[in-house]
Design a binder for these strands. Structure first.
Lengths: 236, 236
DNA sequence: TCAATAACTTTTCTCGAGATTTTTGTCTAT
DNA sequence: ATAGACAAAAATCTCGAGAAAAGTTATTGA
């Protein structure tokens, strides 16, 4: 296997925060994805430093980290803003995700070993369990599902040796979360997502790259359609 | 044409720096790409703040910006380092670039209008002129060529409506520059790059997407081969 | 009434000093 | 001689206050 597979990530994401700035960064990121801070909203350091209980410079650094994820945009001398949302943007994100994720899956299927297969099966199992608990409609169960859904998609491309594809993939996934949250709000899992995931797993384990990537593409694009059918003024 | 084509960039790059932090960021970026700061080198804020004549917090912010470009890696509580270089990494960068840039070129060819064609021809002309002046071997002429080469590649994918692909493409191009600098050091333009560019332009204007992307792929991958044939210890 | 200028307020940006954490160096005991 | 622990040094991280810029409101003149 390639050395890069074991190399540290481009941006540390799995580790727990070791610095105040990173803690504030995570809270802010969560709040932006959750919609606490609305798209386009101005993020004033003076107000937010009290809210997140850090110094001005520290919060500034947290905001800078969010610029890396493109969840915040910075305009020199004019402060920070929550990155705006639009249907066009989500379409762009989704198509780029398809491009990267299918390529990564293809490589995973070609290169993945037994351990990779096992991790895919395991992640799929965890996700299935989370789906069962989704019925209660609680926020906790949906967050659990979000996390495991992400873990599942990461496991699928886990054997892809390209650190860069995984890095970009990571950024786009965060972006998607912001939009997917909208689609879940109105129509909580109407699609038979489970069957789609099952089909991807089957094709992947059968080492059928063409089939797996085809299903994955449709799977990702379906979320775009779901958001498209929301009321037009939902994205503001 | 898509709205996104005229939307502001994800990270402002063309504008001139409006803040001290951004000025320091550009100088640092240049120095890292040029190899003044070697790969893996520790970047101590206390030393660098004098060298770049800014405060500690400001330099810190500049370093954070470089993390976005993945030219610097930050480890919580353990400071900053110049991103390491390796042949595997360059191979990864190059393959990912091919994936993104061919997709972008394909879309450009499908969607580009007359203005796009004109900009491609113009950029190619500028690049050709720069190639003529390359004979003197001066640093200025090589920098001019670098800039126009980049402008040419940007023009090619200029009609691609995906802001995200262009954003990632941008990051990868900066990364490539670091490595390409090495290959130019020993063998200054041995390949017939001009003919390759000409072939891409011809295919693009003929709206032959398959041919154009094929040539572009080979074109980009050739740089990888050039670096591969350098002495093994060149990348440290 | 409207436009342009000027003063004021708000916000961002910048700096230097103090508190934590990591790293380095030394010493002792097995 | 090596390993572990303790202490000193260096570096990072954090904070609050001052300087610069942007945005806002009020005033003045046509």
């Amino acid at each position: 296997m390639n050395d890069l597979a074991n190399a540290p990530d481009l941006v540390s994401d799995s580790d727990e925060p070791k610095t105040l700035a990173e803690t504030a960064y995570r809270q802010l990121r969560r709040d932006i994805i959750e919609g606490v801070h609305r798209p386009g909203e101005k993020l004033r350091v003076e107000h937010l430093k009290d809210q997140y209980e850090v110094g001005a410079g520290t919060l500034r650094e947290a905001l800078q980290l969010l610029v890396t994820d493109a969840l915040v945009v910075a305009q020199g001398q004019r402060g920070f803003r929550v990155a705006p949302m639009s249907l066009d943007d989500f379409a762009d994100i989704t198509r780029t995700r398809v491009l990267l994720e299918t390529s990564a899956l293809q490589q995973s299927i070609e290169l993945g070993d037994d351990a990779w297969e096992a991790s895919v099966v395991a992640a799929f199992h965890m996700l299935s369990r989370a789906e069962d608990k989704l019925g209660d409609g609680s926020k906790a169960s949906r967050e659990e599902w979000e996390m495991r859904n992400r873990a599942f998609h990461e496991a699928l491309i886990g054997a892809c040796p390209s650190r860069w594809i995984r890095h970009f993939q990571n950024i786009l996934y965060h972006q998607s979360e912001r939009y997917r949250r909208l689609s879940l709000f109105r129509q909580p899992i109407p699609r038979d997502v489970h069957a789609e995931h099952q089909a991807i797993v089957d094709a992947a384990l059968a080492r059928n790259g063409a089939e797996a990537t085809r299903i994955l593409s449709e799977h990702i694009l379906r979320t775009l359609e779901a958001v498209r059918q929301l009321p037009a003024d939902f994205i503001n």
